[in-house]
């Protein structure tokens, strides 16, 4: 067991290292937008474009050779001293910490809604397969997964924000955190995020639950005279939850770094998705490396936890032979 965990942790570190290296290589191989702009500006103003270029490079710590930069970034990344963001002149950790809050207040509620509603619908439609209710539930879920989230967001903004005036248009970080008003700012972004997530949770839940609906123990339980509800909750829901819960972490990371980005752009939320993307196009190497490193590490460790959960919960699985 210890050997297994140890090996996987080493892998997690190695994978993170690999991803960070790849990211660094990608950045190093790409032209820096800020330098070309600065040089262009200088040439236009009749100043020396080469000096302007050198100044920006200096600012980005790019004056050194690539190897020197690479080594120094790697050392600082793994010694957890992530340094300063080159565009914001602030500690990378504090940039991420600030952005994280805004991601959390939209993504976490959206995920909770998605899990509760998605699992609920999924279970219901698994136990009532091919009924009208199942179709209706599926329809709702499919609506969520199929609607282009960016389009949904702008339509919601137009209808509820502009035409009906029921909700504010963009997010305002100055609203008191614990207030109903704050909620009104979050309704639309959370709705957009949750609609997509509900559908995927529902699908997982339905598929998983279907496996247990006809399992022998379910039949036994039914034969013993348990009510349908009891069967559903104790013999279908419980075993199905284990794999479901473990996909949550991966889901959260996925939402933050994909769906949430679009939502953040449209509603003006300064969350982690938006900040990471800005870091990327502004070639803010320390920030990019940190924002790539975190999700990779989290996902890999989550995978590990998932495997451990399996081995602990299901004695039939032995950890030596299993891969995620």
């Amino acid at each position: 067991m210890a050997w297994f965990v140890g090996r996987r942790l080493v892998w997690a570190l190695f994978a993170t290292f690999l991803v960070v290296t790849l990211t660094f290589a990608l950045l190093a191989a790409s032209p820096n937008p800020e330098t070309s702009q600065a040089a262009w500006q200088a040439a236009q103003d009749g100043s020396d474009p080469e000096e302007a270029r050198a100044l920006v490079d200096q600012q980005h710590g790019a004056g050194d050779s690539l190897t020197t930069q690479y080594v120094s970034y790697m050392v600082s990344m793994f010694s957890l001293d992530w340094g300063q963001s080159t565009t914001y002149n602030e500690d990378v950790t504090s940039v991420i910490a600030n952005a994280w809050v805004y991601s959390a207040i939209t993504v976490i509620p959206a995920t909770i809604i998605a899990v509760v509603v998605g699992f609920g619908i999924g279970l219901y439609s698994a136990t009532h397969q091919y009924t009208t209710a199942d179709y209706a539930a599926t329809l709702v879920a499919f609506f969520g997964v199929s609607i282009p989230n960016f389009w949904f967001a702008i339509v919601l903004m137009l209808v509820f924000g502009e035409l009906l005036g029921l909700t504010p248009i963009s997010y305002d970080s100055e609203v008191p955190f614990w207030s109903l008003e704050h909620l009104s700012y979050l309704v639309l972004p959370i709705t957009v995020l949750a609609t997509a997530a509900v559908a995927s949770e529902m699908r997982y839940a339905r598929a998983e639950a279907l496996e247990y609906v006809s399992a022998t123990w379910t039949k036994t339980a039914r034969a013993k005279g348990l009510s349908e509800t009891a069967v559903t909750i104790r013999h279908v829901f419980r075993p199905a939850t284990v794999p479901l819960v473990t996909i949550l972490v991966a889901d959260l990371v996925g939402i933050i770094f994909a769906t949430a980005y679009v939502v953040e752009v449209i509603f003006g939320i300064p969350g982690l998705g938006y900040v990471s993307y800005q870091a990327l196009v502004r070639m803010d190497t320390p920030l990019v490396l940190a924002t790539t490193l975190i999700p990779v590490f989290v996902t890999i460790v989550a995978n590990l936890c998932q495997d451990l959960a399996y081995t602990v919960l299901d004695p039939r699985i032995d950890y030596e032979g299993r891969s995620p």
Partner: peptide, 9 residues
């Protein structure tokens, strides 16, 4: 694993 943990978008 790596491919899937990358922020692909």
């Amino acid at each position: 694993d790596l491919l899937m943990t990358f922020p692909t978008l």
